[in-house]
């Protein structure tokens, strides 16, 4: 495999995790436009542990995920007071706060960036991406996930059938933050250089776009969306300078014709049925 395609695949793997981090929170009807913030936290914590403390990458990633999870829960509580667009704006503010924090946080390089992490292989990135994707896919068949969807569909009714909506929503933030942190840790150890600019608003938007394009009601949508987001601009190369515009047009078309994204539950059920019939 050429290094070019290896690079694209690594980007897809990292983006799958970023998209999943948005998806997990979105399942409870909360849109986060600040997941690049959690990614940054994971990125810097993991890099500190491997570069300064000489930890192995895996435990560093786990600690980074746990750190972000705690911060996610802390963010999740005030988020309970906000809904819809206002919540989105608040998370956007959180992302920008984290970015500007690392810009001035000189122990980790500040605006000059930070390096010194060991490099991880493409395979390692995909072990994490596939592992988390599998985990989410399994969880989607659990009662826990049904409870999250109940909160999404009708929060009040969910409470009135016995679901602890507070715990569910805050938990989703914690889980999503942890996954974003793993994406960040892998990003840092793939590019072996990070700077606050890597974790800007655009990054948060990319995560959201991958989820929306791929399908916002199933975890597998994150995979489809991430692949599209990375590969489409490559496939659209014949459009030369206009490929981003073409991408924007496609995004709007998808939203207009299939607002739930390319993959959704009925489509997955249909695919499963076909496979069973064939077998």
């Amino acid at each position: 495999m050429s290094t070019y395609y290896a690079g694209l695949l690594a980007d897809i793997g990292i983006l799958v995790l970023g998209a999943l981090s948005v998806y997990i929170i979105l399942v409870t009807n909360q849109l986060s436009l600040g997941n690049a913030g959690f990614m940054a936290i994971g990125s810097y914590v993991a890099s500190f542990l491997t570069a300064e403390q000489h930890w192995a990458v895996t435990p560093a990633l786990i600690v980074a995920a746990l750190t972000a999870c705690v911060i996610g829960v802390i963010v999740g509580f005030p988020a309970l007071r906000l809904k819809g667009i206002y919540l989105a704006i608040a998370t956007l503010g959180f992302g920008e706060m984290v970015r500007s924090f690392f810009l001035v946080f000189t122990p980790m390089g500040g605006s000059g960036g930070y390096r010194g992490m060991p490099h991880v292989s493409l395979g390692y990135i995909w072990i994490w991406a596939a592992g988390i994707l599998l985990l989410v896919t399994l969880l989607e068949r659990s009662r826990l996930w049904l409870e999250m969807r109940a909160v999404h569909d009708d929060e009040r009714a969910a409470g009135l059938v016995g679901i602890n909506t507070t715990l569910t929503k805050v938990g989703a933030f914690g889980f999503g933050a942890a996954v974003a942190a793993i994406a960040g840790g892998l990003f840092a150890h793939h590019y072996i250089y990070i700077e606050p600019g890597n974790f800007d608003f655009q990054r948060s938007i990319d995560f959201v776009l991958a989820v929306i394009l791929g399908g916002s009601t199933v975890g597998a949508g994150a995979l489809v969306g991430a692949a599209l987001l990375v590969l489409l601009p490559e496939w659209l190369r014949f459009l030369a300078d206009w490929r981003l515009a073409a991408f924007g047009v496609m995004l709007i078309l998808v939203l207009l014709t299939r607002p739930q994204g390319i993959l959704d539950r009925p489509l997955l059920a249909l695919l499963r049925l076909r496979r069973n019939r064939a077998a």
Partner: peptide, 28 residues
């Protein structure tokens, strides 16, 4: 307008589509 019945985050995302297009056009 076509997305008015959709949840409020859907039109937000479509405006992201427009901002991608505008930035690309201006750059070109």
């Amino acid at each position: 307008e076509p997305l008015r019945q959709a949840p409020p985050i859907t039109p937000l995302l479509s405006t992201i589509g427009f901002s991608i297009i505008l930035q690309n056009v201006v750059t070109n």
